[in-house]
C-alpha cells in the first residue's frame, strides 16, 4: 500500500461516523523503491503531484511517513514549497514509492484494526459494522 493510497483512505464503518481518518500505521515491513530516475521525473508526474496537493491531508501524510520511517517531510506545506520542483519530485517519490508491505492500520475513532499483508490492506467489514441504509 502506497502512502498516497493511505492518505485517501478512511474507515467507513457506521461506528466511525465518517471520522475514521487517518489510519495509524504500525509498520512491520516497509519497502521503498529507489527511484532509478530520480531527478528526471517526468513532467506528467510533477503535474500529478500538483493536482494531488489539494486533496492531501498534510499532517496525516507527515505522520504516516514517519510511521514508515521517513522523516524528511516538512511539518507545514508552504506555498513556496508547493511551487518548488525538487520538493514536488521528492514528494512524488514519497507518495508513490514507499509501500507498506506488512503491518496494521488502526482506526483513530473506533480502534478497529485492518491488517496489511503482502502489500494489500484487508478492508473487509462485516455486514453489522456497515453503515445502516434505510430502504
Amino acid at each position: 500500500m502506497r502512502l498516497l493510497t493511505h492518505n485517501t483512505m478512511r474507515n467507513n464503518s457506521k461506528e466511525a461516523k465518517g471520522m475514521g481518518f487517518p489510519f495509524k500505521i504500525t509498520a512491520a515491513e516497509v519497502k521503498v523503491i529507489d527511484n532509478p530516475d530520480a531527478g528526471a521525473t517526468e513532467e506528467r508526474d510533477i503535474d500529478f503531484v500538483k493536482r494531488m496537493l489539494p486533496i492531501l491531508e498534510w499532517t496525516a501524510l507527515v505522520r504516516a511517513a514517519s510511521e514508515c520511517g521517513i522523516s524528511s517531510l516538512p511539518h507545514t506545506l508552504t506555498t513556496d514549497l508547493a511551487e518548488s520542483r525538487p520538493f514536488l519530485q521528492a514528494l512524488y517519490h514519497i507518495l508513490m514509492n514507499v509501500h507498506l508491505i506488512k503491518g496494521m492500520l488502526t482506526c483513530p475513532v473506533t480502534g478497529r484494526e485492518f491488517p496489511v499483508t503482502n502489500g494489500v490492506p484487508n478492508m473487509m467489514l462485516e455486514e453489522d459494522e456497515c453503515e445502516r441504509v434505510r430502504l
Partner: peptide
Amino acid sequence: NVCSTGDLMHHDMGTGLPFR
C-alpha cells in the same frame, strides 16, 4: 524495483467504499 502505478486493496464494495 517494482513500480506499477497500481495499488491493491481487499474490500467488498457492498460495504461502502473506504475512502475520504
